[in-house]
Amino acid sequence: MADKKKITQLAAGDRTIPPDGAKMIPFYLMGSEYLVPETLTIMKAVEYAGYQYIRGCGCRGGICGACATFYRFTGDYRLKAGLACQTVVGPGMIITQLPFFPANRPDYNLDNLDNTRGDLHAELRRLYPEVFKCIGCGTCTRTCPMDIDVMDYIALMKRGDLKGAAYKSFDCVMCGLCASRCPAQISQFTAAMFVRRLVGKYMLPKAGHLEKRIEEVKSGKYEKMLKKLSKMKPEELRKLYIEREREPDLAEPGVWMPEDKECL
């Protein structure tokens, strides 16, 4: 067992174990000073300091929007924003997390836009009149941790370019940082959610091949085939599996057809 001694102590899971001599830096969590090893994210620095998250922590991969954070560096007047799981701590960083921010989000029925007789832009005006009061300061854009040009998609909404606004806001993780800084009190991220769904349902063309397949499924067309497969012996199934044709990588969608068309 002599060689076992050489094994490095493995950091289990996400717990950080800094090596001897790691450079420690001062970091201020809501004003309290903690020394943490450099290179950690804000999230891991907070945990290194001994906190156990309840709020303010989610996917830990930059996509869920749970860990919105404001920070400054001592001696620097500028206020910065980021996601705690994606932002690296620096010496003298002062942070506070914003795990939740109240947003305006009126209910609506996506299947019934009778109030405005299906006029999508009018529907936006009806539900989110404040969007049209944007003063164009650009603070939202500067605050967005996903580098979305928030002010620009708000401008597109005002102009009636809903499709443009939907695509421009697509990377939104709904962390709420934009809304927290808006002097016009707009909840940009909920308005954008509404617009994306309008576009997804009413402006993107429907997938005709999907509609057709849904009819086929509803008619029970595949139930018999699947039942047959379900009852097959493993070696029969394995044979079918090995023999199945593979759609070529470069085939245009909807063009290539297999030799065996019986089970389509």
Binding site: L110, A166, F170, R196, R197, L198, V199, G200, K201, Y202, L204, P205, K206, A207, G208, H209, L210, E211, R213, I214, E216, V217, K218, P253, G254
Partner: peptide
Amino acid sequence: PLTMGWLEELGMMFDKLPGGRMK
């Protein structure tokens, strides 16, 4: 397919080709 149709109805923005065909 039923599930995908449901998502389309709920306004999910799938990647599509100009004619509506799914990428």
